[in-house]
Amino acid sequence: MFISKRPAGWKTFRLALCALVLVPLVSPLAFCRQTGGSPSPNGAAIFNRRCAKCHGEQGQGISAIVSIAGPNIQAVHNPGRAMMAVETGPGHMPSFVNVLSVPEIRAVSYYVTQHLAVIPLQGGNLAEGGTLFRTHCAACHRTAARGGALAFTGINAPSLANYSAPLVAGAIRWGPGPMPAFPPSVLSDEQLNSIVKYVTFVQHPPDPGGNSLGYCGPVAEGFAGWIGVLVLVIFTIWIEKGGRG
């Protein structure tokens, strides 16, 4: 004759309760991921094929001796403006709207603004950049530059983890979307360089303590702590139930 030590209903109840607890516990951890990506067509190749003839391989422009002279485009920081130029063809420049597909136009514009647009990226003081970043940027992008939520328009400040230094510099100057622009009157070239240096640093900070949990802060730490508690609870089950055969 078998009588369960625990009443029959206990097991169902316990299983259901476990599920109730576990599902909300584990699911939010999946959130803390960084997103980002670059346009797939090769912007550099398109630029060298289509644009370099006039603008030069570095976008420095070709001197006006030749009839097809193109201006220096190294100060174009705004991908929107670059795209507009490629599409409409201002002045002597032809329109590429029938030549290049939309992703290609985007790719070449990003190439121009990220790789050719020259804000003299040298020098800069890392620590000063950190201070400036906390003053001017961290209120939206958070101190680890992993993005922050803004209740204005539903557009969040993006994570800067995957942005190249020239793009960061350009974005500071041009102010994409709802982001304010920081003209040289607010941030000098030197200060801008410091900020870019800090952003580049904080994209891959040393993390001496181990896994950074995506720099999500106390929320992610809380979930990790609960996993620790869960592991310990499993240990207690093992302690009391294990080894009894």
């Binding site: 209120a139 939206c140 803004l150 209740a151 204005f152």
Partner: peptide, 30 residues
């Protein structure tokens, strides 16, 4: 700390309250 020029809102990043600067910083959300 943050002013957004398209919506003319000030935002407090701690609890995401927004204030409309045009109407005397009346709270509009949060």
């Amino acid at each position: 700390g943050m002013f957004e020029s398209q919506t003319n809102l000030l935002l407090c990043p701690c609890h995401q309250s927004t204030f409309n600067v045009l109407t005397g910083a009346e709270p509009t959300g949060g």
